[in-house]
């Protein structure tokens, strides 16, 4: 689904975004991106969305080479990628319903099917009773669920989440993660950049750890921290 080959992105003047980054994320995977702030997680997500251009290297998303993708085609790429952000990025002057509907309007979905799909997805995320509310009228957790609903309403093959639980309390965060897992079960590839140590440790999914733009760990069923042999021995004794 996503292939990075020797990708380097340096911001002006010489802040490292990603350096010689290579990885392969397969279809239907659930992947955590972990690492300190500034380690390159957001850069990676922005590169996948073609919000940024890499300085060198090759990126393939769903078989398409982003380097040769025309500007005009970028919106089409983004329609196949659902996005969830730490700050929700909801349109502040649209209701919950309209926020989700907007993602469908954008792809030219007929009005009738919009009227069917939006309530469906909102009930899936448990917000059937808030459809007429504006984002500022609901809680952070609820806003994030709207954001997830918007990301998934098109049933994209890929869903990216940048610190989806960063701004909400731990219990609500669990709900959001469960939602992402359910989405993953429908076959959608899910990539979650996160700081949430407990969450990563509990879920034991594939973990990619970044440090200063480099991939330092790629573990099949990893935890948040790299467990060194010494630590393991200490744990045993």
């Amino acid at each position: 689904m996503i292939v990075f080959e020797d990708v380097t992105k340096i911001y002006d003047p010489d802040v490292v975004g990603l350096q010689d980054f290579t990885c392969h994320i397969g279809k239907g995977e659930f992947v955590f991106l972990v690492g300190a702030s500034g380690s390159g997680k957001s850069t990676l997500i922005k590169l996948v969305l073609k919000e940024l251009q890499p300085d060198s290297g090759r990126i393939l998303v769903a078989g398409r080479n982003l380097g040769t993708l025309r500007h005009r085609k970028v919106p089409l790429l983004r329609r196949n990628i659902g996005c969830v952000f730490q700050d929700f990025k909801l349109l502040p002057n649209k209701t919950v319903y309209d926020n989700v509907a907007y993602a469908l309007e954008v792809v030219g979905e007929p009005r009738r099917s919009i009227r069917r799909k939006v309530p469906e997805i909102l009930s899936l995320v448990g917000l059937s009773d808030k459809t007429a509310n504006y984002p500022h009228e609901i809680s952070g957790g609820e806003q994030q669920r709207v954001s997830v609903a918007r990301a998934f309403v098109n049933h994209p093959p890929l869903l990216l989440a940048d610190e989806p639980t960063g701004n909400i309390d731990p219990e609500t965060a669990v709900g959001i993660m469960q939602l992402l897992v359910r989405i993953n079960r429908t076959g959608t590839t899910v990539v979650v950049a996160t700081h949430d140590r407990d969450m990563v440790n509990r879920m034991r999914r594939r973990v990619l750890q970044l440090d200063n733009g480099r991939l330092v760990r790629d573990e099949r069923r990893g935890g948040y921290d790299q467990v060194t042999e010494v630590e393991e021995q200490e744990a045993l004794t």
Binding site: P75, L77, R78, K89, L91, P92, N93, Y102
Partner: peptide, 16 residues
């Protein structure tokens, strides 16, 4: 401008 940024992220074409 934030509004425009969000529209772009959900895949709206420039003319849209």
């Amino acid at each position: 401008r934030r509004e425009v940024e969000i529209m772009r992220l959900v895949g709206a074409t420039n003319w849209f």
